[in-house]
Design a protein around this nucleic acid. Structure first.
Lengths: 220, 220
DNA sequence: ATTTTACTAAACCGATTGGTAAAATTATAC
DNA sequence: GTATAATTTTACCAATCGGTTTAGTAAAAT
């Protein structure tokens, strides 16, 4: 089953090496600043090999963005309904760990930087990243509303508020100041506060849920 | 008093033309993608003139970022305490109009793009832009707390929450998808919702303030 | 054993890059 | 009106860009 010919295997490995090297160079140098020579050198591959695999620089860039985005977001799971405050808490940390990782931030910076010159890439990222994620949060929030735990009219706005309250501040700062990254204590500060504000504004039983949140935070 | 020699006048005007052209080219092409020839052409000036005025490309970039940032943020005013909900509403729109303008978004994209290669520029922007603005909001919120209109422990977190609730969603989307920009109806949707959530979580008299907000929104 | 595939290093292409030396232009001083 | 000093431009540099070609080689398929 898993027996690929040595040829195909080598090819696969080389393609992966090129993609990885290209992602690194593009993220660190930007699209214009990245040279095909630099990518070839980092991938330990000759330049014509890259052109044979991916065509032009622009096509290579497109391939990078697709594979990079998928790799980073596929590992992410949406919360499954359980005890709400605990769900929200673990979701928030799961999301924070993904979004605040150096690789993810570098990719986001690259997408933002090239959004004007490659509009389709920005759109594709928004659709398959934030939008898909938002949909997952919305579904969860709607479930909890049906169970009588939350109160809101517009699920999309509620989901966006949750996102914004938890990660807007540290992410924006990290986008502007890559070094040093906010540490876990900083993120925890925003995260705990954000969840508290969300519950005060959206919970059907704020005092209960805030007490739960305090317990969870104290236990962590 | 205002009598500059023709030489000095010409010099001043040329410097301004170069800065303006450079800002445009850098914002549209990124640092690496921007060529000194393109800047010279747009400024209708020869390339050596630019080098005489600003030294190297890197120094020109630094000069741009300083002047561009100052020009855009100096026009912005912090809210002066009055009727709170009305203050927050007009502040929110004032801020939204500034932050969501195409020029401001382009500059933000540029800063984010080059944050790794020019860390001091990202830091300078954060300090003189978001941080200064945040300080203004904090002062206002603290005043309102002292007057018994708001309830919170951490003024910085409260200010960041206000920011995030109002503008995080549309700004993030605009950063990823420059075209089309969210229109005023979209921004109004986020803004109204964000203010509502903020008041539910932070107001000392939520029902009163939410009613005020509804009145203001209806009147607009 | 031989042919084919996949690859490499290197040189090369025209165009463009950031940057400069020297000539030409301009405004000022006499 | 001419000499002089400041300012700008023309013309150019070496280096690098994305991309291709060439010549040659190691290994897999036949």
């Amino acid at each position: 089953m898993n027996s690929l010919s040595p040829r195909a295997k080598n090819k696969q490995e080389k393609e992966h090496r090129i993609l990885k090297a290209a992602l690194w160079v593009f993220c660190n140098q930007g699209y214009s600043g990245a040279s095909m020579d630099a990518i070839a050198a980092r991938a330990e591959v000759s330049k014509p090999t890259i052109y044979q695999y991916f065509g032009t620089k622009e096509q290579l860039f497109g391939a990078i963005m697709l594979s990079g985005r998928d790799r980073m977001l596929d590992a992410f799971s949406h919360p499954a309904p359980g005890e709400m405050v605990r769900d929200l808490y673990s979701f928030a940390w799961d999301y924070a760990d993904t979004v605040m990782s150096p690789e993810f931030l570098s990719l986001a910076r690259l997408i933002i930087a090239e959004a004007q010159r490659f509009p389709e890439i920005g759109r594709a990222y928004q659709a398959s990243g934030p939008d898909r994620l938002l949909r997952g949060i919305m579904d969860y929030l709607i479930t909890q509303r049906a169970a009588g735990h939350l109160v809101f009219d517009d699920a999309e706005l509620a989901a966006q508020d949750l996102w914004a309250l938890i990660l807007s501040a540290p992410r924006n700062q990290a986008l502007h100041i890559p070094d040093p990254l906010p540490n876990r204590a900083d993120i925890a500060r925003y995260l705990h506060n954000g969840l508290g504000v969300f519950l005060r504004a959206y919970s059907a039983h704020p005092s209960n849920d805030l007490a739960s949140l305090a317990t969870i935070i104290a236990a962590a």
